[in-house]
Nucleic acid binder design. Structure first.
Length: 284
DNA sequence: ATTAATGTTCAGAA
DNA sequence: TTTCTGAACATTAA
């Protein structure tokens, strides 16, 4: 589930506790599920990271990155249901990995918990990071992209703008939930071809994505009905209470009051929008 | 029993 | 070449 705001919340939640600590252990947790994808294997990772200090915890798009003193980096992709936790997992049956972290006599654990198990944990050398996270894999981070760059990238594809926003090579960090919310605030129809957006529409979209992602971070992300998403201390986010369209099919649009929210499918994912607020432009 | 779920990636067709 | 569709990955809950 996690998109940029949820991953940013994870990073902020673990950073203070984790930075500056030595990795004194790294292990798979007993769990009845299939193991999650990990490269290289557990043994190879362990020999490379044991007694290494974590010097930085950061986010790139929807990934959590742990930088180690030896220039290796863990790159954690929570995908649909992965969480980074410092305590109290939602349940013990889906704990996947544990890092034992030490500083002097103080020992803490950091866990990767993942219900569906689609998440991945990889360890890269510095020289491999560019291949894994460089511009061929990821576009500019959604919170760092300029209007100019966004305009340029939109002009290069004829796909529907909702689909383009989900393309991590075009812009990185936006997922299915926030794409719908961003387009609603920008008053742009999700099926509008990206290269047919007017300059002022792209400008609006840029403003909207900054506003929505930053506000969602302030609210510590969205915890939807199934309650899967939790912060590092196993607490719910609260941005779900601010959603205007996502998951609100048939309910009234909070912006125009008149119309009810429509659900449609694009690229096999649900899109929610207001047929009154979000109309395609007349640009030829 | 069926379907959909905050993600990514691949194969194959248009 | 670009775009679209379907399926796969693994698990749960409505």
């Amino acid at each position: 589930m996690p998109e940029l705001p949820e991953v940013e919340t994870m990073v902020r939640g673990i950073r203070e506790s984790v930075e500056g600590r030595l990795i004194s252990g790294f292990q798979e947790c007993p769990c009845p599920c299939k193991p999650i994808a990990m490269t290289p294997g557990i043994k190879a990772i362990r020999t490379r990271v044991l007694n290494q200090k974590i010097i930085a915890v950061r986010r790139l798009a929807k990934r959590v990155i742990l930088d180690l003193e030896n220039s290796d980096s863990f790159v954690i992709e929570p995908r649909m249901t992965g969480l980074m936790l410092l305590s109290d997992p939602p349940d013990t049956g889906h704990l996947r990995l544990e890092w034992l972290l030490q500083k002097g006599r103080s020992k803490i654990s950091l866990w990767f918990w993942d219900r569906r198990g689609l998440g991945t944990v990889r360890l890269f050398r510095k020289s491999e990071l560019e291949t894994a996270l460089g511009p061929l894999k990821l576009g500019p981070d959604a919170l760092a992209i300029s209007v100019k760059e966004l305009k340029q990238r939109c002009s290069e594809t004829s796909r529907a703008i909702k689909v383009a926003l989900l393309d991590q090579k075009m812009i990185a960090g936006i997922g299915n939930l926030y794409a719908s919310e961003i387009l609603h605030l920008s008053r742009i129809h999700p099926e509008q071809a990206a290269n047919r957006l007017t300059d002022s529409e792209v400008q609006e979209m840029h403003k909207a994505l900054n506003r929505i992602l930053k506000t969602a971070i302030r609210y510590e992300g969205s915890t939807l009905g199934d309650g899967t998403y939790r912060n590092a201390l196993n607490q719910s986010g609260s941005y779900q209470n601010q959603h205007q369209v996502y998951g609100r099919e048939g309910k009234g649009c909070p912006a125009c009051k008149g119309a009810s929210i429509i659900r449609m499918v694009q690229a096999q994912r649900s899109t929610f929008y207001c047929p009154c607020c979000q109309v395609k432009n007349d640009r030829i």
